[in-house]
């Protein structure tokens, strides 16, 4: 089936099968490998993308469900040359170690900040609790989100 969506500001049309997952078309057909897959069953959050501004798990989403949506992946938030403030903050505050969970974390944090521009640390803990990180122990991630406005 043909689906049409806007991804990272670009209108896109794709022919997809009914059983294709969103994460696979992003990574394999659109080359957007910043979106990671850590479990495939919705438990780790590494595959989060913004669907109409809200963080959603692309491993549990079918490609067909993207039809008509506005999507932002980690690449759409910013690039090393022009990073999003969250990406900059994660990098500067030591919130990145292996970095495999980071895109999903940044996406989940972007969703939170869109709804609550100045969340407290506990609200950040809550909002990121669906994103697993095995390297950091989380505290620098919480700092990166909490202090995103401080430079």
């Amino acid at each position: 089936m043909i689906i049409r969506f806007c991804i990272n500001g670009r209108d896109t049309e794709l022919d997809v099968r009914g059983d294709e997952r969103a994460v696979d078309i992003l990574r394999e057909r659109l080359g957007l490998t910043g979106t990671k897959e850590g479990c495939g069953t919705g438990e780790c959050g590494a595959c989060a993308i913004l669907v109409d501004g809200r963080a959603r798990l692309s491993c549990l989403t079918l490609a067909a469900q993207l039809d008509g949506r506005d999507l932002t992946t980690i690449e759409g938030l910013g690039s090393p040359e022009a990073p999003h403030p969250l990406q900059q903050s994660f990098a500067e505050r030591g919130a990145v170690q292996c970095g495999f969970c980071t895109p999903g974390m940044v996406v989940a944090a972007a969703d939170l900040l869109a709804r609550d521009p100045h969340p407290g640390r506990e609200a950040i803990r809550e909002a990121l609790s669906g994103n697993l990180c095995r390297c950091t122990g989380y505290s620098r991630i919480l700092d990166a989100v909490h202090k995103v406005d401080e430079r």
């Binding site: 490998t33 090393p80 505050r93 990145v96």
Partner: peptide, 16 residues
């Protein structure tokens, strides 16, 4: 000092 790999990873640009 921030790690040199951190920003590319935070932007999803690092290729694993």
């Amino acid at each position: 000092r921030p790690r040199l790999d951190a920003l590319a990873k935070a932007c999803g640009a690092e290729l694993f």
